[in-house]
Design a protein around this nucleic acid. Structure first.
Lengths: 236, 236
DNA sequence: GTATTTATTTTTGTATACTATTTTCTGCAA
DNA sequence: TTGCAGAAAATAGTATACAAAAATAAATAC
């Protein structure tokens, strides 16, 4: 039986369960509610979201393709644990792509977009001060927003993927529950973009990412929690 | 019933059917045996490979994630037809990443690797002269080889993906059955890398990719063939 | 008490069954 | 013919059933 129908005013419409589940798991991982190494049993997840393992399986496959979960044969899925080597590669590729993003953005950014970015940074600031779990996600989304504004969907997708994986890396190697993106640095980037100062924007972004890479070299913390209770916060 | 077992001398070992199917479909697309827009019905493919639709579905999902096939709800899978805009984005991102590959490679390439590259180009040349369907694939694999030698697995994966998608673009917008990678240009790149001439290597690679982009602006050709017969060549 | 087998349970991998949607076919009317 | 129902067939979406493997628990030997 499928409970995934609801009336949204006009028509009864089937909401794509797999998509909501994908978003939920993704968010749970990025916000570090689910942490590297956590098991992701198919039936548990299926029960919580009210779908069969078939759907769970396809979503896990997708997340695997994006590098967010590891998938060992006959042993199921776990939240990915990038090695240090992988971590370096991820940061390196990310820097390379984001460098290009800034390069293009300096030439095409509009005042409306500058405003949008400033608003976003303000939201980051708010989340950070009240220690919301959103703060990690919002910091990442700043970079994703930049990539989308640069007007290349392919690059934007890769940046999105890499930024997400950086959350994992910070969860593993960085200090706990830190976005490690200084909000002030984000503001500097916006300012440079606004002035059209490509050299400055370029330098700040590169320094920013270098700093983030640096900070990802600390102790990891163990944990032993119940996936069921964590998922409660993420089920629709 | 599953026929996917065989004895490889020591032990009876199950060869992962989904992986061979993935490889087969991928190759068929890259070599342009399956062309943009071709339908990929789940049951037909499943029959040919002797697996259920479950497996087919997961493989199609994976290929979709890599941008090689389009997936419309309730209407099945087709070989992807990138729009012109997507095509530009793909080439742009590819250039950006390959630029970085060359940058890193100049500093770390070994004589053994130079030899490996030269051998590869020789194979390209051979395939090209006898008009083998491999020639398209080999031309792409040259770029993938470079990316792998650069020592960043993440970048290598992205380059792999983008090079594959370029095959689609050429099939759609380029002249039919052309790799559009001049073998001579590949040789020039290797030579520059060997000399450690970063400026030259950089310039040649960029010119090479610019040329490829340029050439991807011609007429498309229609077609009407039987997927069954095409697949015969790709079934294990 | 520890270690090593063996049995039990859990969890994943794959095929199949069923449902829903889309496409194709067929008949009838304009 | 051409256009439009409606029926039939084909195809995709999802759940379930069953097989295979791994993890866990129990039992026996040392």
């Amino acid at each position: 039986m499928n409970e995934q129908t609801l009336t949204t005013g006009k028509k009864r419409q089937r909401l794509p369960s797999s998509n909501t589940m994908y978003e939920a798991l993704r968010r749970a991982i990025i916000e570090q509610a689910l942490r590297p190494g956590d098991k992701l049993p198919e039936d548990v997840i299926g029960d919580r979201f009210g779908v069969s393992r078939t759907i769970v399986r396809s979503v896990l496959g997708r997340l695997h393709g994006e590098g967010l979960i590891d998938l060992k044969p006959n042993r199921g899925a776990t939240v990915a644990q990038p090695t240090l080597e992988q971590a370096y590669d991820i940061f390196e590729t990310r820097r390379s792509l984001e460098r290009d993003v800034v390069r293009r953005l300096v030439e095409r950014i509009t005042p409306a977009e500058v405003k949008q970015l400033k608003d976003h940074v303000a939201r980051e600031e708010a989340a950070r001060t009240q220690d919301s779990p959103d703060s990690i996600r919002l910091a990442g989304e700043f970079h994703i927003l930049l990539a989308e504004m640069a007007g290349n969907a392919v690059t934007a997708r890769y940046v999105n993927e890499l930024v997400s994986r950086c959350s994992l890396i910070l969860a593993l190697y960085g200090r706990p529950h830190s976005s490690d993106c200084a909000v002030s640095e984000h503001l500097e980037i916006v300012a440079a973009l606004q002035k059209g100062d490509s050299e400055k924007a370029f330098a700040v972004m590169d320094h920013h990412l270098e700093a983030v890479t640096e900070r990802a070299l600390l102790t990891s913390s163990n944990h032993q929690r119940d996936i069921r209770s964590i998922l409660d916060d993420y089920v629709k």
